[in-house]
């Protein structure tokens, strides 16, 4: 039984008698308890944390979510919870073994690249312009707007130096594409 394990590991060489021994046990317990899974009450394995800040083993939380698929709430505070909104905790020492291989893997952590604020004013204008074009022209519009959305990302990376000649070139290019597009539509109408 767990009670026995506890007393086995209690410090033997304390001289203060039972009281200090008890206190020491409690102190250590509290330290460990901060990282206990709120469901199995054991130290959290494959730890995940909810948006409301509560710690669980992933297998425990997964089983809880499976138990009541219609009404998913945090087992501690009953806040709304879902498997997409838990964050895995990656400590330094990984868990030695995972006996629950049948479970779906713990959800991935979400990583977003830091935003690049370099060339905002520029492609803000371009984007607006190309969008209105895209809506106007039916078959070509799809291509044009997709093409345009891909473009600023590349530009964002390159525009750190803010070479005016480069910007000029790109403006010329977009003009060119616009004319090509208009010609294409014209050709479509004629043909």
């Amino acid at each position: 039984m767990a009670v026995d394990e506890e007393s086995d590991t209690s410090p033997r060489n304390s001289t203060g008698g039972e009281n200090t021994e008890n206190k020491r046990n409690e102190g250590r317990g509290e330290e460990e308890r901060a990282f206990e899974c709120n469901i199995c009450l054991d130290t959290a394995k494959d730890a995940v944390i909810s948006m409301c800040g509560h710690l669980f083993c992933w297998p425990c939380l997964h089983q809880w979510l499976e138990t009541r698929p219609n009404r998913q709430s945090c087992p501690v505070c009953k806040a709304a919870i879902s498997r997409d909104k838990v964050i895995p905790l990656y400590g330094r020492g990984g868990s030695k073994e995972d006996p629950r291989e049948k479970l779906p893997p713990r959800p991935q952590g979400q990583r977003t690249e830091p935003e690049n604020t370099g060339a905002f004013s520029n492609f803000g204008f371009d984007g607006g312009f190309q969008m209105s074009f895209g809506i106007g022209a039916f078959p070509f519009g799809l291509f044009a707007s997709t093409f345009n959305f891909g473009d600023p990302v590349i530009r964002g990376h390159g525009a750190h130096g803010t070479n005016p000649a480069n910007l000029e070139d790109e403006r010329f290019l977009s003009q060119l594409f616009l004319w090509v597009a208009i010609l294409f539509i014209f050709w479509l109408l004629v043909a």
């Binding site: 039984m1 767990a2 009670v3 506890e6 409690e26 199995c40 009450l41 054991d42 425990c60």
Partner: peptide
Amino acid sequence: NIAVQRIKRELKEVLNS
């Protein structure tokens, strides 16, 4: 197993409360 483990821990918790 998880139920047994939980009960063991809970008994300890109650008795120390």
